[in-house]
Measured scan of single mutants.
Amino acid sequence: PQECLLLEPGLNEIMANSLDYNERLWAWESWRSEVGKQLRPLYEEYVVLKNEMARANHYEDYGDYWRGDYEVNGVDGYDYSRGQLIEDVEHTFEEIKPLYEHLHAYVRAKLMNAYPSYISPIGCLPAHLLGDMWGRFWTNLYSLTVPFGQKPNIDVTDAMVDQAWDAQRIFKEAEKFFVSVGLPNMTQGFWENSMLTDPGNVQKAVCHPTAWDLGKGDFRILMCTKVTMDDFLTAHHEMGHIQYDMAYAAQPFLLRNGANEGFHEAVGEIMSLSAATPKHLKSIGLLSPDFQEDNETEINFLLKQALTIVGTLPFTYMLEKWRWMVFKGEIPKDQWMKKWWEMKREIVGVVEPVPHDETYCDPASLFHVSNDYSFIRYYTRTLYQFQFQEALCQAAKHEGPLHKCDISNSTEAGQKLFNMLRLGKSEPWTLALENVVGAKNMNVRPLLNYFEPLFTWLKDQNKNSFVGWSTDWSPYADQSIKVRISLKSALGDKAYEWNDNEMYLFRSSVAY
């Protein structure tokens, strides 16, 4: 590609939709070469300064400071330590791993069909083939991996386009969902002041979706909304933040926050679980009234959910574990990228498509890292959202599997949720969690119950496949010279610098 592309739109479109291996590689590498390399010296300084700040406030390091958001002291029976968070994340991840490994094996087999000769049947997945710029969410792999393609499509993007949905309609439908469970409408100022579409040439905007509580009843969302099912669900997520903000607005200023950061992320995700169900999509006209649910549509639905929800958990866990180790000084600065990709291979089963030396800073190419967000919130929120969903479905008197529950129109479920939201940070999160779900610790069981039918199906699908991955295989081993030459021509001086062995191999191949 010759034109100058922004991340959004532009590069993200390539990473969402392109099936051209080399075009995807160009976009993936260009973003890291342009952005990651510029941020490397800044990120090194950032780590030093943030650690100084944390230690001045009596924390061991900046990662310890972040984990302090979960700490509860002096509340008998509800205490929770920063170290306990690490333990809980690690042991819940071990419980999730078998499901993830089977999802990984299934996706690898489907990617082998889409990119023959580029995928190893026992290796890691190349990082640039996973549906977005970071491989964070695998949602866009659904069209390549759908188990029963002859069934009606449960990705309702086409239906939204056919019905001329726009950003306003998407957010109005999200608002209807919250109102149906007894939560309030958005304010008039929300509709007047939010930026729900890309302003285009009028001004440059950071398009990463964010929710804003500017105080004095001024709530806004910034999002360059596209007419897709993914953005339909994202709208519910962002509006969930606003509902939380509005619910605790009466609290004293210092207590106007989520019980912990994971709670804030979980609220909209609960609504997304219901909004994505075929039952709900039928009720708002995005699935045909004669759409029939059966075992095959159930597996299609659960796989689509797993690509988004299960596929991202190792990504989140590994990223934050790397940062915690960096802040603690356990990874020397001259080994940041080496350790990043070692951990990516070992924990996530994902491999870099071309080698990256220590001039890169791949983590900082992600919005949340370069903008100083702690990231473990996206792991804890996933466990909380299924715990909350299970409890709210019980309040809504849902009968049947958890993945079929739609809590819309249940004011009982809405009241149970609101009673927790309005507390803000005035009560320990362990107590707030217990008030809703009857337990005071994160628990992976509801998530595993939700995906149980899919897990059973995946194990059957993978019975003749290798489950797990070898960390030795690299996608650039066989194609390295071709890849390096093409990237050198595209990126010039910003391309990865060849070492002596690679230059010798190149000259030998040319001479041959």
Rank of each mutant, 00 (worst) to 15 (best):
H208K: 10
L233F: 07
G217E: 14
R381M: 06
V206W: 08
F375I: 05
F219C: 14
N193K: 15
T234A: 09
M246E: 09
V206S: 08
F367D: 08
R136Y: 02
R381Q: 02
H241G: 01
D245M: 09
T234I: 08
T234K: 10
G217R: 15
E265L: 06
F367H: 02
F137R: 04
F367I: 10
Y378Q: 09
R220P: 03
D245W: 13
E265Q: 04
F375G: 06
K216M: 14
A249S: 06
N153L: 06
E265M: 07
R136Q: 05
T234Y: 07
Q305P: 02
W212D: 14
R256K: 04
F253Y: 13
F253H: 13
G215D: 11
V206P: 12
H368M: 03
Y373H: 10
N140R: 03
E269G: 02
M229N: 01
L233N: 06
D218V: 15
Q188T: 03
H237Y: 10
N193Q: 00
A249D: 11
F253Q: 13
E265N: 06
V206Y: 07
F301W: 03
P209D: 09
F219K: 15
F367M: 02
Y378T: 05
F219A: 14
R136L: 05
R377E: 05
S374W: 04
P209F: 12
W212T: 13
T234F: 08
W212K: 12
G215A: 01
H237D: 03
P209W: 12
L214C: 02
Y378D: 09
D372N: 11
F253R: 12
P209T: 10
R220W: 14
M229T: 10
H264E: 06
H241T: 00
D230S: 04
F375E: 08
D245H: 09
H368A: 06
H208C: 11
I309A: 03
R377N: 07
F301L: 09
T308E: 01
T187A: 01
F219Y: 11
H264T: 06
V206T: 10
T187E: 00
F219H: 10
F301K: 02
T187Q: 03
K216P: 15
D245S: 02
F253E: 14
T139I: 09
H368E: 08
D230W: 03
E261R: 05
T187W: 12
G189E: 14
R256G: 08
E265I: 08
N193E: 09
S272P: 09
R256N: 04
L233V: 09
P252S: 06
H368S: 05
G217Y: 15
G189F: 14
H368F: 05
T187K: 15
G215N: 02
E269Q: 06
H368K: 03
Q188K: 08
M246Q: 11
D213L: 12
Q188W: 11
T210A: 06
L233T: 09
Y378H: 09
M229G: 08
T139E: 06
E269A: 02
Q188E: 08
H241A: 01
G189L: 14
P252V: 10
